[in-house]
Amino acid sequence: MASIKEIELRLNDIQTETDPRFIELLSDERKGVQQAVAKWRKRQAEKANLRQAFAEMTRHELKARDDGAVIIGGVDEVGRGPLAGPVVASCVVFPEGEEFLGLTDSKKLSETKREFYYEDIFARATAVGIGEATAEEIDTHNIYEASKLAMVRAVLNTNAPLDFLLVDAMSLPLEMKQESLIKGDARSVSIAAASIVAKVTRDRYMKEIAKDYPGYGFDNHAGYGTAEHLQALKTFGVTDEHRRSFAPVRKHVTTT
């Protein structure tokens, strides 16, 4: 008779309840076996929910393909709100038929999950492009236009013959068919992937510049206007990474 451990391992290879191996386990009255079966059913239910969510988030990609698009890029940006650092955008092209279960808006994921998906996206995506607009460009153009600039750069840096874009709440000045989706990072898997790539890229950048600007806590708050950051502005002044057109920063530019 197989041990409970052996049965748990066996269950990892079983995909459906119609599998004869699973049916056989149902007649095993050992408590450990029935607990293992219950855990398997729970995992299968969770996976089914993830597949359903993934199917919902691929509707826009599927519609674009039905309309004739072949290479579809999802575009998103992060970093509009911070007082320091660039706004970063990404464009991601997914291979048709690939499953990325659990992929969603980067804001809904833990840092550990974002890092996992970031690596998975780069490993499996057809193409990934990243673009940014610096703090100086944000001051020159305003944050909306700078965000658009970063997104255009991300599309161009994808280096793929894109024929359709799914863009998070933005229309880009590109001669390319595109669809703007409000809350696109929660509605399109391609945009969600772009939001993750952009978020991880920007967070890594802010952690790196924290070494150059000790005392500001960029590695803790990524440039957002936290109490720690506002106090650092009072104590140390404005850096080259700060957005001088933003009010909490601007008042320190005039007084330092």
Results as ranks from 00 to 15, higher is better:
T255V: 05
K251E: 02
K183A: 12
G217L: 07
F116N: 01
R10E: 04
P20M: 07
T18M: 01
N157R: 11
G223H: 00
L156C: 05
A123I: 12
L26E: 13
E46T: 08
A64H: 13
K234Q: 09
K107P: 08
D139A: 15
K199M: 01
E175I: 12
L156R: 03
D219L: 13
S190N: 11
S106E: 12
S245D: 04
A48E: 14
G79D: 01
L174A: 10
R59A: 02
A84M: 07
K47L: 08
T239Q: 07
S147Q: 11
P82H: 14
L165I: 05
K177Y: 09
S245R: 02
V128R: 00
V197A: 04
G102I: 04
H60P: 01
L9F: 05
P248A: 11
M57V: 13
N49D: 09
A53R: 09
G73W: 03
R250P: 15
R10C: 04
H242N: 04
A169I: 15
R43Q: 07
D163T: 07
I23W: 04
G223A: 13
G237S: 13
T226Y: 02
D163P: 03
V200S: 01
H60Q: 05
R114P: 09
E96Y: 07
A36W: 00
E61T: 07
W40T: 02
V155Y: 00
T256W: 08
L230Y: 06
P82C: 02
T18P: 00
I72Q: 00
K31W: 08
F164M: 03
I191S: 11
L172M: 12
K42N: 13
L166A: 13
H252T: 06
F22G: 14
G215N: 05
I121S: 12
S27K: 04
T126S: 15
R204W: 08
D163W: 00
H252K: 06
V253S: 14
D67G: 04
V167Q: 01
A55V: 10
D28E: 01
V33T: 03
I23P: 09
S245Y: 12
R65W: 11
L9D: 06
S106I: 00
P214D: 01
I130Q: 12
K42C: 10
S171R: 05
E56A: 11
T239C: 05
G131R: 00
N157W: 02
V189W: 14
V128K: 00
N220K: 07
V253F: 05
A48Y: 15
H229N: 01
R21K: 02
K108W: 10
S3Q: 06
T140D: 15
Q178R: 05
S180N: 14
Q52T: 04
I138L: 12
M206R: 06
F100D: 02
A193I: 13
D66W: 09
R204G: 07
A186Y: 10
L9T: 08
G215D: 11
F218Q: 02
D13N: 12
P20C: 07
I7N: 00
L83H: 01
D168M: 06
F164P: 00
S27C: 14
R65E: 10
A150N: 03
A127W: 07
D28K: 06
Y205P: 13
V75Q: 00
T140P: 03
L156H: 05
L83Q: 00
E208F: 02
